[in-house]
């Protein structure tokens, strides 16, 4: 009897040790891989004091870079949200031939290198590309200009809203929507009053990811923009140039600004989401 209880206690101790070990290993990994670099950049960006930060933000090319990044982000978020919701509804609610293919296509931008996306855009819209004559005839500059930069960023950011919303819709099922129909609600009323409130957290998270991705995009934008200082240079492209020109300090400051924006946005949404689920739960 006592032997059994002793071994049960030993078992429990062993289980606790295992857990402590797993936890330590995991925390160490996260600390070294994720937190240390974050700490590093905060330290080096602010090393020279806030005066240097102010100085950096007063430079006109830095301001223009942020301005451009903001425009690209806003347009990208609007487009990917709108299309994301529609595609997610179709993928989650309709059955059709080739659905698997569409679902794989949606994921494609996650797997394909942004560099390749940029190249594709150059080949399509650049000199000798399929669509070049069409836009050239109308005097619209696509490559080395804002339109292509927005286009590739949208392409790369498309999966996020869809991937966040589809599982929520699937789990939700259709019954609430059908109930709304039987009560006389139109499709639009049903979406606005029943579906949207139910998917709002997943949707917001997807939008945040989409926004984070669009301000951080560099590979594709580098290729299509030509990276013209003060013209087609986004914040990330500015960092690229600053590094090349040995202005590390400014690069760190701009990089930290971008990171802070995304991190605050994402953490904010996660916190709201947790609070909401706690209230509901």
């Amino acid at each position: 009897m006592s032997a059994i209880s002793t071994s049960a206690r030993a078992d429990r101790r062993k289980a606790r040790l295992w857990r402590a070990l797993m936890l330590s290993v995991a925390l160490l990994y996260v600390a070294v891989l994720l937190l240390a670099p974050l700490g590093g950049i905060i330290y080096y960006a602010l090393k020279e004091g806030l005066g240097e930060v102010g100085h950096t933000f007063r430079q006109s090319d830095v301001r223009h870079a942020f301005y451009l990044t903001a425009i690209i982000m806003v347009v990208t978020v609007i487009v990917t949200t709108f299309f994301g919701i529609i595609v997610a509804l179709v993928l989650a609610r309709d059955r059709f031939v080739g659905k698997r293919l569409v679902s794989a296509l949606v994921d494609l931008p996650l797997a394909v290198s942004p560099v390749i996306v940029g190249l594709m855009a150059v080949l399509l819209f650049g000199r000798g590309g399929w669509f070049e004559p069409f836009f050239a005839a109308r005097g619209i500059q696509v490559i080395f200009a804002l339109p292509s930069m927005i286009l590739v960023t949208i392409f790369i950011s498309i999966p996020f809203v869809i991937r966040e919303v589809v599982p929520v819709l699937q789990e939700l099922g259709m019954e609430e929507e059908q109930a709304a129909w039987t009560l006389g609600a139109s499709r639009l009323q049903t979406f606005r009053r029943v579906t949207l409130p139910n998917i709002r957290w997943g949707l917001l998270y997807g939008i945040a990811l989409s926004a984070a991705r669009s301000i951080g995009e560099v590979g594709a934008v580098l290729i299509v923009s030509g990276s013209l200082q003060g013209q087609t240079e986004t914040a990330t492209l500015y960092i690229l140039r600053a590094f090349d020109q040995y202005q590390e300090q400014q690069a760190y400051i701009v990089a930290l600004t971008l990171a802070s924006f995304s991190i605050v946005m994402l953490i904010g949404i996660e916190t709201l989401k947790r609070r909401a689920s706690r209230e509901a739960g």
Binding site: E175, E176, Q178, A179, R193, N198, A280
Partner: peptide, 8 residues
Amino acid sequence: FQHYALFR
């Protein structure tokens, strides 16, 4: 509906 389908 069988599972009520109330708007949660």
